[in-house]
């Protein structure tokens, strides 16, 4: 199933949504991504990824309450679905398995 595989950026976004818990909406996700990956996260790109993940069924969203900020516009909060959680776990497992196959890995040589 090619469609359910996670791309690198998709994985990052999905993880961020999970990390933010109930506060995961587009701008916060961007900020969080920028903070941890130390690369700039463009709103347009992130939004497109969120939309794609929702289409794949890995995320679900609902509109929050209107507040005085953002010109009175409501925020769309994202939440990782069960399928999303499974996908994340699966990716992590693949990585872990691969990591365990490497013998005597250390960073000393490259420094």
């Amino acid at each position: 199933m090619k469609g359910t595989n996670l791309g690198e950026y998709e994985e990052l976004v999905l993880l961020t949504v999970a990390a933010l818990g109930t506060e995961a909406y587009s701008v916060a996700i961007c900020d969080e991504l920028e903070k941890y990956t130390e690369r700039s996260a463009k709103l347009g790109v992130v939004h497109a990824v969120l939309n794609r993940l929702e289409e794949k069924g890995l995320l679900k969203s609902h509109l929050g309450e209107a507040t005085a900020t953002r010109g009175g516009k409501r925020k769309r909060y994202y939440e990782v679905t069960q399928a999303g959680k499974l996908a994340l776990t699966k990716t992590r497992q693949v990585r872990e398995t691969l990591w365990q196959l490497i013998k005597g890995f250390n960073l000393e040589g490259s420094i």
Binding site: Y25, S26, V27, L43, T69, G71, K73, R74, R76
Partner: peptide, 13 residues
């Protein structure tokens, strides 16, 4: 549109 516009507003501010 609502969510998008809100995002843009936030960035605008």
């Amino acid at each position: 549109v609502e969510d998008l516009e809100g995002d843009l507003n936030e960035y605008f501010e």
